[in-house]
């Protein structure tokens, strides 16, 4: 696969490490009364769609950026690539 890095352009997926569902950015707040349940769901329950999936990749053999890649899990087509830090900031983290 080739991941079109938002800063560096197309790079071979072999340079990257895969983590999983991009919702892993959305770490719960420990002070929330339901924190135990939220952490369980955050860590273990995943959307696992056949189709469009937002997921985290780390450019370990590159610029060390974490990326949010929007990819079709059926065709492997990549629709969008963002810097995960920007995504996280936009989410108010």
């Amino acid at each position: 696969m080739i991941i079109d890095h938002p800063l560096l352009g197309p790079r071979d997926a072999a340079e990257f490490v895969y983590l999983g569902d991009a919702s892993l950015i959305d770490r719960p707040d420990l002070n929330n009364p339901e924190a135990g349940k939220e952490f369980f769901e955050y860590l273990y329950l995943r959307d696992n769609p056949e189709g469009i999936h937002r997921e985290l990749w780390y450019h370990e053999q590159g610029d060390r950026s974490w990326l949010v890649v929007t990819r079709n899990t059926l065709t492997h087509e990549i629709l969008n690539v963002e810097l995960a830090r920007q995504v996280a900031l936009a989410m108010g983290r």
């Binding site: 892993l24 985290l56 780390y58 810097l83 995960a84 995504v87 996280a88 983290r93």
Partner: peptide
């Protein structure tokens, strides 16, 4: 060594980007 660095970068960029 490599795994911890990766995890720390994840925490730095994704969990606490500020």
């Amino acid at each position: 060594a490599v795994l911890v660095f990766r995890q720390l970068e994840f925490a730095r960029q994704c969990l606490w980007p500020q």
